[in-house]
Every structure is written in structure tokens, then in C-alpha cells.
């Protein structure tokens, strides 16, 4: 019997999309699914919406200290570890969000559990979990076998496609657990700044993304791409090379070390397609590659390829779209 714990995240008053995906994955894999949420007294948890999801138990950890500092997740790590000490699970799932990337390994090492991050495939064969995860920035895929007896911790890449919608007729039982944090706390968050206003449409939510890379040559070029993104009702993104060159803010970086995006249309301009970039965009439904190097790696994942000078192509592309939409 597989008894799985999903560590969920609340975003904008809702269970995050990624956490919902974890519940679907767990439902397919496990006999019993539990969801745990670390909450401050200010968090408004939409329990009525969550308890009708495919989950058997919801554990609400009520942690007053989270009111003061959530920054680097010392308190979340502590609370989850205390919780895990009182319960037995065969499998603990996090999403590979920023939260999961930090908290999952901390919880794993603190509780002496084995951990694999950024898994893109998980299934069960007898008493083994079969795991697939990309390595070398996506150049290769590694397959692992992990015994269900050691209760491993995995983080799962967001945006995995082909997750079946599940019909659900159970209502979860809810348990509230109060946790007081009184450990030494030598590192604290002082201030937080959001660049969100830079993006009119969030990259993660965008249906269309126009993304630029080193091949653009300068920061002014991004104004042209911004114009195209606006015209299409999409968002602007960039490769790490363009961000590192200082042409555009790092918060728009797409790739292994930036954001993972899954739009319907991803228009890449002057991006060579290093594996670490593809790791963030290759799950887009349709990729258009515009590049003057016919051997650029990006063409390997593109549904549509355009070989030539991006500047002229984009200018003509923009004016053609304006013409087409006038018709």
C-alpha cells in the first residue's frame, strides 16, 4: 500500500496549479493521498475547494511564527520535519517550484531521507518507484529505481503534460496541527521586492511568449520583441545569455535556472537553444525558432523554423500580423 504525502503551496488564496498536479500524480500512484500545508495565521486556505480534490487527508499546520518570517523557509522546514516525525509515508512529493527546490532537500536531509529533484516521470513497479529526470540541462535522461520502503522525497517538474483529469467522489478529512517554532534562527528575511510589474502578463500564465537571446545583440532589440509580445497578447521572455549580458531583467529568464514555461506558442528569436534554456521551454506546445544559424540547436525542438536575420523577419512579421488582424 502506497501512502503518499503531497506538500502543497497556497498561491493567491488558491492551491497552486503545481500542487494540484501533484495530487493527480499521487492519485494515480497511491492508495492514500495526504496533503500538508504550512500556514500562517494570515493565510486564507480555501479548504472548501481543496477538500473535494482527490485527497484523503488534509493536514493544516498552523504556525504563528510564519507571520513574521517566511523568507528562506527555516520555519516551513522545521514544521514539516516535526510533522513527518509523527506520521509514516512511503513517498513525499514536492513540486519543483522555488519553494520545493529549497524545502524538499532540507526536509529530506534533516529527516535522513533520500531525495531526487526535478523528476519528469514517476511510476510504480512492485515495490520500486521508477523515476525519470533530465540531467546535463536536458541533454540526457536518467532513470532511477528507488525502493518504496525508504520513503523518499521527490520534487516534480511543473507543467508535465498528459495528466488525466480525475473524477473524484471523496471528501477529505481535515486535521489542524499547531506548531510552535522556537529554534535558533540566525538568518532572516529583511525585505522583499517584486518585479512583477515588469510583466503585464506573467510568463508562467502566458499563452504566447516571445523570447530573445544572445543573437539579438543588444538591449534595444528587446523593445521590438516587446512590441510583438504586446501585439499578440503575450509575454516577453529571454535566455540566460541575454539576461547575463544585462540586456533584460533576470526575472524574465527562461530555462533551468529561470522560469519553466508551457505556452501554446513560444517564439524564440536569436536563441541558440542551449540545453539549459530548452529545459525551461521545451514543453511549450508549439515552438517557432528564428535564427540565422541553420545548425542552431533550437531548430531541433521547433515545429516552425525560420532561417535569416531576425531583425528584418520580425519587422515584416509584425507588419503582416497588423495587416492580418485588420482584415
Amino acid at each position: 500500500m502506497i501512502n503518499t504525502l503531497v506538500v502543497g503551496e497556497i498561491k493567491d488564496g488558491k492551491l497552486s496549479e503545481n500542487s494540484f498536479d501533484l495530487l493527480k500524480i499521487s492519485d494515480k500512484l497511491s492508495d492514500r493521498t495526504s496533503l500538508v500545508l504550512c500556514t500562517s495565521s494570515q493565510d486564507n486556505v480555501p479548504l472548501d475547494d481543496i477538500k473535494i480534490l482527490p485527497v484523503d487527508f488534509i493536514y493544516l499546520l498552523k504556525i504563528p511564527s510564519l507571520d513574521i518570517d517566511r523568507g528562506i523557509y527555516d520555519i516551513d522546514t522545521y514544521a514539516l520535519s516535526v510533522f513527518l516525525n509523527s506520521k509514516d509515508f512511503n513517498l513525499i512529493l514536492f513540486s519543483k517550484s522555488e519553494y520545493g527546490s529549497v524545502v524538499a532537500p532540507r526536509v529530506a536531509f534533516r529527516n535522513k531521507k533520500k531525495y531526487l529533484s526535478d523528476c519528469t516521470g514517476i511510476s510504480l513497479k512492485e515495490d520500486l518507484f521508477l523515476i525519470e529526470r533530465p540531467i546535463y540541462g536536458g541533454v540526457a535522461i536518467a532513470e532511477y529505481q528507488v525502493s518504496t520502503n525508504i520513503s523518499p522525497v521527490f520534487s516534480i517538474r511543473s507543467g508535465l503534460q498528459n495528466l488525466d483529469d480525475i473524477s473524484n467522489n471523496k471528501i477529505a478529512a481535515i486535521e489542524e496541527i499547531d506548531i510552535q517554532f522556537n529554534e535558533p534562527h540566525p538568518a532572516k528575511m529583511i525585505e522583499e521586492y517584486s518585479n512583477d510589474s515588469l510583466e503585464e502578463i506573467k510568463l508562467e500564465d502566458a499563452k504566447i511568449i516571445v523570447s530573445g537571446g544572445r543573437g539579438l545583440g543588444n538591449e534595444i532589440a528587446f523593445e521590438e520583441l516587446k512590441k510583438l509580445a504586446n501585439l499578440l497578447g503575450g509575454a516577453l521572455g529571454a535566455s540566460r545569455a541575454a539576461c547575463d549580458a544585462g540586456w533584460i531583467d533576470h526575472s524574465l529568464q527562461i530555462g533551468l535556472t529561470g522560469k519553466t514555461v508551457t505556452p501554446d506558442l513560444y517564439i524564440s528569436v536569436g536563441i541558440s537553444g542551449a540545453s539549459q534554456h530548452l529545459a525551461g521551454c521545451s514543453m511549450s506546445k508549439n515552438i517557432v525558432a528564428i535564427n540565422n544559424d541553420k545548425d542552431a540547436n533550437i531548430f531541433n525542438v521547433a515545429r516552425f523554423g525560420v532561417i535569416g536575420d531576425w531583425n528584418q523577419i520580425i519587422k515584416s512579421f509584425i507588419s503582416s500580423i497588423e495587416d492580418l488582424s485588420l482584415k
Binding site: 515545429r303 516552425f304 525560420v306 532561417i307 535569416g308 523577419i313 520580425i314 507588419s319 503582416s320
Partner: peptide, 21 residues
Amino acid sequence: LDTEYIKGDDESELGRNLAMR
């Protein structure tokens, strides 16, 4: 993936054909 390469005599045509496609 069978990449479909957009055809055109020059960049301007490539851009236009991409938009149409």
C-alpha cells in the same frame, strides 16, 4: 520533430509567410 522551415526569397517574405502560416 519534423521542423517545418518557412520559405521565402528574403527576410521580408519569410516574416510574412510565418505570420500567414
